[in-house]
Each structure stands twice: as C-alpha cells, then as structure tokens.
Write a protein that binds this DNA or RNA. Structure first.
Lengths: 152, 152
DNA sequence: CATTCAAAAGTCAGGAATGGTCAAGGTCAA
DNA sequence: TTGACCTTGACCATTCCTGACTTTTGAATG
C-alpha cells in the first residue's frame, strides 16, 4: 500500500472519530508516526482533501502550529447542484470531475446510479475518438449539462 | 498463436479466477511477463474489452497505477441493457438515442433520474465544441459506456 | 520594545513509477 | 493485392515521494 493511501486513511479515521467533524494534526508529528517526510502530508492534503472533495483546510505555522481539516456540508437549501454548475469552468480534468461526482454522491445529493452514469460519461474511456485538446472542454460541458438535468 | 490472443486469454483467466468479476493488473508487469511491449496491452483492451463485449475498464497512472477490468455481462442470460449496447452501432443520431432512453425508462429498466442524466449527455446541446462529423460516434460511445455502467 | 531564535508549516523542483497515445510498418486471409 | 488486424517504439501525462530551501509565528532575550 502506498504511503499516500496510508496517510489519507489515517486522516479519514481522525475525521470519523472526531465528534465535531474536524481533524487537527501536527504535520511533523504525523509524518514521524507514519514514517514519511513532512511534505508528503502536504501532498496528500492537496491531492485528496480538496474543496471538490468536500474539505476545507486551515493551518498555522510556527510554535503551536497545526493543520486542521474539516468536512464541509454542501448547502442543501439553495440548489447545491446549481452552485457547482456555475462554479465549473470551460475545462475540467477527469480527476476533478470524478471528485465532484463522488462528493455529491457521498453527500447523498445524487443517487448511486446517477453517479455511476455520470462517472462513466466523464471518463476519458468514452472519448476515444475525441482529440485530446478538446476532451476537457467536452467533459465540462457534459458535467454541467448532466447536473442541470437533475435540478428539478 | 498471436500475442493479442495470449494477452486476452490471460486477462480472461484473471477474470474467471476473481470472485468479484474484477481483474486488476499492472501494465508493465503483465507486458514483461507475456513478452510484449506495454502498449500492446492497451491495444488488446481497446479492441477486446469494450462495453460492447460487456467490460468496463478503469485505470490510473503514476506510482501505484493499475488497469482494472470489470465484467458486467452475466454469463448466462444477457441483461436487457446489454442487448441495447450490442444493438447500437458506431454511430447514433440524437433522435434514436433519445428514443432508446425513453423506451428503457418506460420499461422501468432505468430510473427517471438516470434517464434524465443520459438524455442530457446524449443531446447535441452538450457537444458544442465537437465537430459535427464525430458527434454521432461520440454519442454512441457515451450511450454504450453509460449503459454498461448500469449493469450489475 | 525590538531583536533574535527555534519550531512549526509551505513551496517547489526533480526523480521514479506508473499508464496513454499515435503513427508507422508488418502479417495474413479473402 | 488489399484491407483489417496486429506489433512496435518513441514520446507524453499523471501520480507519488523526497529533500532543500522558504515563510510564519510565538517566545526568549537584551
């Protein structure tokens, strides 16, 4: 198992155990405990605990420093899907698109089946005949179109 | 025996041995073991493990990368969705695609939400940047990919 | 106070370990 | 002979991991 997975799993565990949905850690300490260099913690956080995946991260340097990771709930009141549609630009990478869909599913804003369908439509697997240069544009277009279709 | 056959056979074997219908492999490793260049693995996968043939494929690059092949077609008794996947050719018009989805929904083979999502993904509305000449190919590819994702 | 120091966390570039794409050429059966 | 299928290799893209260097912060010191 990769270091990255171990670290991510550890943080997820912390989030689950915390009653306030907040995990606070000390970077050097955690790196020591998990046997990696400190900057690897940053790598994991920036690659797996992104806003698209539903997390926000705060930190402080210096004495008494920390890294705090919070799972954020999408606002259910004002059509969170619309919010995403508006936030997505003209391009989107496969990884980012996937993160958005998985987050929506985790928050139960879309069904498992809808997630499956969308994931398959956003994967490069379906774009064999499409030139590389326009795949990310197509993906963004499809994502927005599909999400819009789900807004009542 | 052709290399392609050897590779395909090997993967099929892996799928049979797997209890979850899923085979995960490392491209370079397999290429080494079977004595071919790595890209030949891609050729085999794109030519023989397609949605039409009842497979869906995911992969990840980079450290700890993999190729995962999942069999969605049931051994005996083909899923009704699989019939459609096989019946659709390399091209499909917007009207025909729409009719297929509406029919599946009417027969309660897919949910209303899944139908909505698929309809939006199959409409030309989402293909603004795609040259006219390849839209129907893209549509067919997406249709098959999405339907396959819904099986099992 | 202002300065200095130590203890955090952040950034970045590079290397290694993967898989992906494409175009050119080879093989073979019809 | 020709067209479909196969094979190869050069080049590209992504993900992970590390370490050197930078920045920020609070506390000790003068």
């Amino acid at each position: 198992m990769r270091l990255t997975d171990i670290i991510a799993e550890y943080i997820l565990q912390m989030l689950e155990l915390a009653d306030d949905g907040e995990a606070e850690l000390r970077r050097n300490e955690l790196a020591e405990e998990l046997g990696c260099v400190p900057s690897q913690i940053n790598y994991v956080i920036t690659s797996r605990f992104t806003p698209e995946q539903g997390y926000i991260v705060e930190s402080k340097r210096g004495g008494g420093g920390y890294i705090r990771i919070r799972r954020v709930k999408l606002e259910r009141g004002v059509s969170p899907l619309m919010h995403i549609v508006n936030a997505v630009g003209d391009d989107i990478s496969p990884v980012t698109a996937q993160a958005i869909i998985e987050n929506l599913e985790a928050q139960k804003l879309i069904s498992e089946n809808a997630a499956k369908v969308m994931l398959s439509a956003l994967s490069d697997q379906a774009y064999r005949d499409i030139p590389m240069e326009i795949r990310d544009r197509l993906r963004a277009s499809l994502l927005k179109q599909m999400l819009a279709a789900l807004i009542t």
